[in-house]
Amino acid sequence: MLSVELFVQGIVQGSIYALIALGLTLVYGLLRILHVAHAALFTLGAYIGVLVTNQTGSLPLALAAAALFAGFVGMAIYKLAYEPLLSRPPYIALIASIALFIASEEIYRITFGPYGLSFVDPPLQGQIQLFSGFYLKHGEVLVIGLSVTLLGLLAWLSSSTRTGIAWRATVTDPEIAQACGVNIQSVRYLNFFIGSALAAIAGVLVALLNNLVEPTMGSVPSYKALAIIVLGGLGSIRGTLLAAMALGVIEAFGTIYIGRMLDRDAIAFAFLIAVLMVRPRGLLGAR
């Protein structure tokens, strides 16, 4: 029974990793930039989630507000920070991104205080029983349900709408996509909007599970998401999803079985190193 529980916990955690890391993969695929500041939108989403829930009492409203607001901030980051640097080598944008991420933590600290915020009346604290002796929090059910829904929506968008197909064409060959009449600027905005909105939703979900948001809550996800997209083969969406789930599950088992030797957050890197030793191009990449 323990192993089923651990597996489900791993899937919950993996879903959150997937929501965060997807945006990173999307940006890397389109612009070849390692968008470290992406995790700032995760934290932003968490803050908006708690503030709006506390104000209005509505979690759906909070999720929508976090997604929209972070989506627009993500677009602004592209416009103000990355677009002017596109003609420079990619590490310049990486440096800008790291600076932006550090600055964001300070902004959150100054704006919302150093000690963090919590829900006044935490939503979805109930539990359901899956089978005898195994309970799942409503919040965890929401994590899985929402992730599946959002990823399904994204899959539908990218394979069944003209916009989504044009988006994938732009990732493959932006020049020729333009010559076909695709506005690649809109594609980039859409890309940042969607990636940032997903990260913000992940932020609200983590706030819900931990009932705490702090200025630095994005640091660990930021480097884990980097590990995940490398594992996923840099730019591969399917690879990212697989790596996120695998990491979630391995961490869940790892904390129990090797937790004494290895800290939970170190497991991600042990896993990363182990995988890259056998598959240098990531889980789904060619050997």
Binding site: R162, A166, A169, C180, V182
Partner: peptide, 8 residues
């Protein structure tokens, strides 16, 4: 899909 992009 290539054709769809061509007819964007």
């Amino acid at each position: 899909e290539n054709l769809i992009v061509g007819g964007h």
